[in-house]
Design a protein around this nucleic acid. Structure first.
Lengths: 106, 106
DNA sequence: ACAACGTTTAGCGAATTGGCTAAATGATGG
DNA sequence: CCATCATTTAGCCAATTCGCTAAACGTTGT
């Protein structure tokens, strides 16, 4: 309710975001999915993604779910396909954390 | 042996570094250990670190081991204590990965 | 030599993860 | 409608993770 509570809530959700993002990036396949979609042009259907990996499709679906829950991918239903899109901004939460270790310059 | 093989080996070891670093950072306690040591002045003994967390000491020892193996902490034996020091440079491997998603400027 | 200290190692158990196959869902085309 | 296509959901299993306690290890002070 108070401004103080709002700041507290914002911090908590940022911490949670960091938690999800780091967990999502902790698996090589998921990092590769992100790179694949990014370099393909930012968005791909589930099938296009799955076709590029040596895993059963449901395995990829699960990884996609982790990435979506982490906010690193968006997902839109288009007819009978689903289009996943990289949400680069979400990586900021990790960059910000890393910046604690860089003496802020400028 | 050839220059080509060397490049291949360098790439493999960078990939491995990324793997270890992302895995290490995927746990809140380990991220917090890194921050704690960093803001304390870059180095602390195992006991000083353990004292600041609500976990049994062996649990912290294990987290320290993960961080050391990831190259994010160095460890030096000093008498009967062990001094852990943050190796910030190691975070570069992750920053470099993140940079793939930033349109290279300049 | 011995006790105490700082720390790690060993080993257990519960929870989570990441792979799989088989079955379900929901949209499209004939 | 019925079959097919794109995809997810359910559920299983093996491996890993992360917490713990108890025991071991190497160093220091007496």
């Amino acid at each position: 309710m108070t401004a103080r509570d709002e700041r507290r809530a914002a911090l908590a959700s940022r911490l949670d975001a960091l938690e999800q993002v780091t967990a999502a990036l902790a698996h090589a396949t998921r990092r590769q999915i992100l790179m694949t979609v990014h370099f393909w042009g930012g968005q791909m259907t589930a099938g296009e993604i799955a076709a590029r990996f040596d895993h059963a499709w449901p395995t990829i679906t699960r990884h996609l779910g982790v990435l979506v829950r982490a906010g690193l991918l968006g997902c839109e239903k288009v007819g009978r396909t689903r289009v996943y899109a990289v949400r680069k901004e979400r990586l900021e939460v990790l960059r910000d954390w890393l910046d604690w270790f860089e003496p802020k310059k400028g």
